[in-house]
């Protein structure tokens, strides 16, 4: 069982929900927490795991053996991202443009191009209580995060449930984070902005064929718009987390909601059970 927590809009409470689920579950079983928001991972701030292992993650980019190159231009011709420029007497490689497809070294008639590793970030692993913690950290200046997200998800152990904290948005990094999960929680806030981006996120999970459900965070009892949307789209509204000053104050100190609202644990355990019921068999 692997559940992703996504949102569309940033700042709705993905990490709050993911961390609370993890802490609620960890009292009774081992679980994995996979922070796939590799551009700005923050699950560790709330969970405070002991990070014991750090592994660099690399992607293959072309390296040129100048002596073998005939400047035929085949590589530049096939590269859809223009990561190579072939001039009459030189070749320029732009590793940051490369999407690591391998086409250039595959088609190079002289075998002048070979793959060379380029580090894009690191994976850090550790644990806290019953939680096995994994997150990725993308290097500054790297624009393409999906390979690192994939590497975080490759740490997935099949024998324990996993919670994936997804990045915000609905583009490639999110697709990478939620692909293959059994269920996707969509966290929203009761604002026009939250609803707008929830609509996008719900469309995304539908397109991917991932069953989803909605969590309203910071609910102040005026959630009619979200409720209507969920009814219209046949999306289960699984939990409302009340707007709570104490929780906000705790969050601002880096404390998870359950530290000040221990009774919410039951609500998160119920949420987990509901997810399991709706999840892909």
């Amino acid at each position: 069982m692997m559940i992703a927590v996504a949102s569309g809009k940033g700042g709705t409470g993905k990490t709050t929900v993911a961390v609370s689920l993890a802490l609620a579950l960890a009292d009774r079983q081992k679980i994995q927490y996979l922070d796939c928001d590799v551009e700005e991972p923050n699950g560790h701030i709330l969970l405070k795991p002991r990070l014991q292992k750090k592994t660099p993650v690399t992607v293959p980019v072309p390296r040129l053996d100048q002596a073998k190159c005939t400047f035929c231009g085949r590589c530049a011709q096939i590269c859809a991202y223009h990561a190579l420029a072939v001039l009459p007497a030189s070749v320029l490689i732009f590793p940051e443009m490369c999407h690591n497809c391998g086409g250039c070294w595959y088609f190079c008639p002289e075998k002048a191009l070979t793959p060379a590793p380029r580090e894009i970030g690191q994976i850090e692993e550790g644990g806290v209580g019953g939680i096995e913690f994994v997150h990725g950290r993308l290097n500054v200046g790297v624009a393409i995060s999906p390979p690192l997200i994939r590497a975080v998800k490759e740490r997935r152990r099949k024998d324990v449930p996993a919670i994936v904290d997804a990045p915000p948005g609905t583009s490639c990094p999110v697709i990478e984070a939620v692909s293959g999960v059994d269920f996707c929680l969509l966290v929203t806030e009761p604002t026009p902005f939250g609803l707008h981006d929830l609509e996008l996120a719900a469309e995304m999970t539908k397109e991917l064929g991932i069953p989803g459900g909605v969590v309203v965070n910071r609910s102040a009892g005026h959630d009619q718009e979200v409720e209507k949307f969920c009814r219209d789209k046949n999306l289960p509204l699984l939990l409302k987390i009340p707007l709570d000053r104490e929780v906000a104050a705790a969050y601002s100190r880096g404390w998870p909601p359950l530290t000040v609202r221990p009774r919410w644990k039951e609500d998160f355990l119920t949420l987990w059970e509901k997810c399991r019921e709706v999840a892909r068999p």
């Binding site: 530049a76 859809a80 991202y81 223009h82 001039l87 009459p88 320029l92 732009f94 443009m97």
Partner: peptide, 15 residues
Amino acid sequence: TSGGGAGIQAAQELA
């Protein structure tokens, strides 16, 4: 009309 690397492509063409 390039998806990315427009300047690289343009410069190469001129060269």
